[in-house]
Each structure stands twice: as structure tokens, then as C-alpha cells.
Design a protein around this nucleic acid. Structure first.
Length: 441
RNA sequence: GGAUGGGUGGCCGAGCGGUUGAAGGCAGCGGUCUUGAAAACCGCCAGGGGGCAACCCCUCGUGGGUUCGAAUCCCACCCCAUCCGCCA
């Protein structure tokens, strides 16, 4: 049987250069289109200054290259002359002078290039035309819904009320161990958490064609840059004392498995999944979701990542969100699909669908999955390409939660809670729960 | 942590100061042959930047340095492998 990972060549990391998402040539070709695209992200006009700086850069580079060409010619002549026993002193003198002239041009071209890159690498992706305008989540558009909120016939409790009453969810002990935004689960709830993860992985690997992966939870700068968390979003991440980063999502290591690679077109699509812990500083979330396990520094998530040819990413995006929805449907949850508006779409994404699950205890729709088509944004940054008939081109990358395990646990508790405080376990999880059908009572 | 040995094109692997951007092999693509396929044989085949083009420039882990000239010499860093120590 052919290895599914035959595309992966022997390990040779850190050969990639930092490169920003945006193609300066495209900006040069149509500056106003670029400004219009960035305007949708709430950014002002940038193209004019960029194009001007790029013109300077190319002028310096062109001048430098002329000198380099002359230097190369001289070096060749000197080499030939020496072998023939001729006097090459005059040529060597010219070459020495040339080198001095080149230094300034080299510095100038390098500085301009660094400046341009610093600007470009901090800019967000161009949005898909279908993404609605808007500055925040109120402008998101619900595009589909499965099931409907219903009256349980009693006053529903929130997940932490249920969990604490069962004696199986313990925030006090977690705070003692680690501080706020952590949880300790016991017994059946701990097992339910595990069951959810196992079920999701099995579903995606057996029925959706994803390859299960085990990947590092600690990664280097280049990896975090590749998926776009660096340089702008370092505050959201935890950093280790030896300079690595704790992954905020398996998207980071999974997507970067193709960093620096030139993939055969026949190797695509590549569909990868992993169940990992995710670590987030939640720096900007002070005061939000402080109760319960909605927003934790550490949670588990099954992640879906697809690496595809450029013309296949739109369809892959629909397929991926369908895979995430299959999880929620199997867990008998009520949910809806939302397309995020311009202001709510993450920097790396061209288009994002969120899946929001209905939480009866909280009486609210809450995000449980987010599926993004990043197009070539990440691929450019990490140098992930494919060999196409016309040459190499950047692949497209997509990622989506399939789904967040902690939030799935919350949703199961709140959705399937009973009047007596017990919780019915969805049928698909029974095998994973050793036949247990109910928690509590 | 200690000691060695390494990082060269899609892959393997030569090169160790001067037409070497890089021999050779494999893979891939095109062709000859064949009823067809395989084999054999012939040809093509790194990536990136600039230029209308001819063509030019850059890239042999990364960044510096030496030199008229660096894949080749020097320094620093990163990564990998093996052995020893420690350890889930």
C-alpha cells in the first residue's frame, strides 16, 4: 500500500524565507484594487506609498545588478588571465573599486525590501467578494440552521451549574493548580471529554477522508509566522522560556507540514486532522466568559486542515464546513452556519464560516467551530507550492475546527440536560462511554 | 548535557577557491520502438527576482567575514543523524 505521506520529504527545516502574503507585483499592476480590498478591512490607502518604494527598490536593485554583472565578468577575466600568466593587477584594482560602489546600493536595496516586507506582512488577507460588509459580529449573516431552540419544559441550567452540581467539574481546584481559566474534570465528564475527541477523530478519518496526525504542541517562530499568528498576534500566544510557542490551534503545525515544499499536483488535496491541546493567552478577553469552561487558556480541539490546488479551495471550504456540521448533527445539537462579515473575519482568512451552537442554559448562540479559506495567504508566508502545468504556484490552505471539544462538552451538557440535573449522552457516544447512556441521577 | 559526523536541485548523491547553477543516478515530461504495456534508446527538466526582449542578477541550512572571485576557506547561529549520560 502506498504511503499517504509520500509527499513529505526528508526533514530539512528552516530553509524558508519570510515572505509576506501580498504580491507586490499585483499591487503594482492594480494599486486601486488593492486599496479597495484593504478598505474593506478598514485600512487606509497603502498602495501608492508601496508602489513608490518598490520602484526605488527596483532601481537600486537594477543598478546593483549592473555592478554585479561587471564584477562577475572581471572575476572571470582575472581567472583566465591568471591561468595564462598575464598581469591582472589593473583588473583587480577595478574590481576592488566596484565592490565599494556596490555596498551602498546593496544596503539601500536591502533596506527598502525590508521596509516593504514589514508593511506587507502585517496586512490582512483580501476578502472574498461574498463576505458581507460590516465592522463587527452584528453584521454576520446566518446562512443555514439545523434544528431550532426549544422549550425544555423546565428552567435550563448553564453547563458549569450542571457540572458542579454533579461534582464532576471543578474550577476551584483548577484555580489552585493553575489559576483562572482552567478546569478540572472528573469521572464521567472527563470520560465524556475524551469520548467527544475520539468520536470526532474517528468520524473525520473514517468518513471524511482526513489523515490523523500527531504533531508538536511547541513550535518555532517560522511555523507561527507561516500561519500568520506572527508578527501581529504574539500577545495571544504563550511563549516558552526556550523561545518556542505553545500552539493556539493544531492549524499551526498541521498547515506548516507543507512549509517550504513543492508538492506534486497529484498529492492534493491533502486532508489532515489532529486532536491537540490548544493554548491561548486570551489577552484581549479580560472579563469575557469568566465563568465556566467557555474560554480557557487550555482546551482540546479536533482540527481539520486542507491543502488544495487554488481552483479547488472554494469547494473544499464548503466540504469542510459540512464535515464540522456532521459532528454537531451526530451529537444532536442545534446549530446554525454564519458567514462572518468583513470586520469579524480573521486576518489570514479570505472567508470564514462559523458554526454557532444553541446553548439552552445560556440562551445564546455560541461559536463552536470556525472554518476558514485562507487561499494563498498562509501558503505564501510559508512557501508552500505545487507543481502545475504552467510552473509552480502557491497552494491554498484551509482550516476548521471539527470541532472544539470543550465547547462541544458544554453544548452536550446544556442541550441534553434533564429536569433532575442529569444529562443524556448522545447515542453516537455510547460506545465511547463504555455503554453509559446518562450522567448523573 | 557531552562527543563525533552532517545539511547541495522533486528525491538520492558528486563537488571542497576560478565558464559548477552545480557530474551521475532516480523520479517526472516528450519522442522512437511495440497490437498495447514493460524494457531499451534519444531529448527535455531547480527555484526566485528584474527586463517588451536579447539577456542580466540572486540562491548549495541561515547570517556575517576573507578574496578580484566562495557550494568550496573563516566565524556565529539554526537544524539533523549517531554514540554516551539523563529521562516519560
Amino acid at each position: 500500500m502506498k504511503s499517504r505521506c509520500s509527499w513529505r520529504r526528508s526533514s530539512r527545516p528552516n530553509r524558508r524565507k519570510r515572505r509576506p502574503m501580498h504580491d507586490i507585483r499585483a499591487i503594482r499592476a492594480d494599486p486601486s484594487a488593492f486599496d479597495a480590498a484593504m478598505a474593506r478591512r478598514g485600512l487606509g490607502h497603502l498602495a501608492g506609498a508601496l508602489v513608490a518604494r518598490d520602484a526605488d527598490r527596483r532601481a537600486a536593485q537594477g543598478a546593483l545588478q549592473e555592478k554585479q554583472a561587471r564584477r562577475n565578468a572581471l572575476a572571470r577575466e582575472i581567472g583566465q588571465g591568471k591561468r595564462a600568466g598575464a598581469d591582472t593587477a589593473a583588473l583587480e584594482a577595478e574590481a576592488t573599486m566596484l565592490r565599494a560602489e556596490m555596498e551602498g546600493l546593496e544596503a539601500r536595496a536591502g533596506a527598502l525590501e525590508a521596509e516593504i516586507r514589514a508593511t506587507l506582512e502585517a496586512l490582512p488577507n483580501v476578502l472574498d467578494a461574498e463576505v458581507p460588509d460590516g465592522t463587527d459580529e452584528r453584521a454576520n449573516v446566518v446562512v443555514a440552521q439545523s434544528g431550532a431552540p426549544r422549550d425544555l419544559g423546565f428552567q435550563p441550567q448553564q453547563h458549569f451549574e450542571l457540572g458542579e452540581a454533579l461534582g464532576l467539574m471543578d474550577f476551584a481546584t483548577a484555580a489552585k493548580l493553575a489559576g483562572a481559566r482552567f478546569v478540572v474534570l472528573r469521572g464521567a465528564l472527563a470520560r465524556l471529554e475524551r469520548a467527544l475527541g475520539q468520536f470526532m477523530l474517528d468520524l473525520h478519518t473514517r468518513e471524511h477522508g482526513y489523515t490523523e496526525m500527531v504533531v508538536p504542541s511547541l513550535v518555532n517562530d517560522a511555523t507561527v509566522y507561516g500561519t500568520g499568528q506572527l508578527p501581529k498576534f504574539a500577545d495571544d500566544l504563550f511563549r516558552t522560556t526556550d523561545g518556542r510557542w505553545l500552539i493556539p490551534t493544531a492549524e499551526v503545525p498541521l498547515t506548516n507540514t507543507v512549509a517550504g515544499e513543492i508538492l506534486a499536483e497529484s498529492a492534493l488535496p491533502l486532508r489532515l486532522t489532529a486532536l491537540t491541546d490548544c493554548y491561548r493567552s486570551e489577552a484581549g478577553a479580560a472579563g469575557r466568559d469568566t465563568r465556566g469552561m467557555m474560554r480557557q487558556h487550555q482546551f482540546r480541539k479536533v482540527e481539520l486542515v486542507s491543502i488544495v490546488a487554488p481552483d479547488a479551495s472554494a469547494a473544499e471550504h464548503e466540504r469542510m464546513v459540512g464535515c464540522a456540521e456532521a459532528v454537531l448533527r451526530a451529537l444532536e445539537l442545534v446549530f446554525r452556519r454564519v458567514v462572518l462579515c468583513a470586520g469579524d473575519t480573521g486576518a489570514g482568512a479570505a472567508k470564514t464560516y462559523d458554526l454557532e451552537v444553541w446553548l439552552p442554559g445560556q440562551q445564546a448562540w455560541r461559536e463552536i467551530s470556525s472554518c476558514s479559506n485562507c487561499r494563498a495567504f498562509q501558503a505564501r508566508r510559508m512557501g508552500a507550492r505545487m507543481r502545475a502545468a504552467s510552473g509552480t504556484e502557491f497552494v491554498h490552505t484551509l482550516n476548521g475546527s471539527g470541532v472544539a471539544v470543550g465547547r462541544a462538552l458544554i453544548a452536550v451538557l446544556e442541550t441534553h440536560q434533564q429536569a433532575d440535573g442529569s444529562v443524556l449522552i448522545p447515542r453516537v457516544l455510547w460506545p465511547y462511554m463504555g455503554g453509559m447512556e446518562r450522567i448523573g441521577a
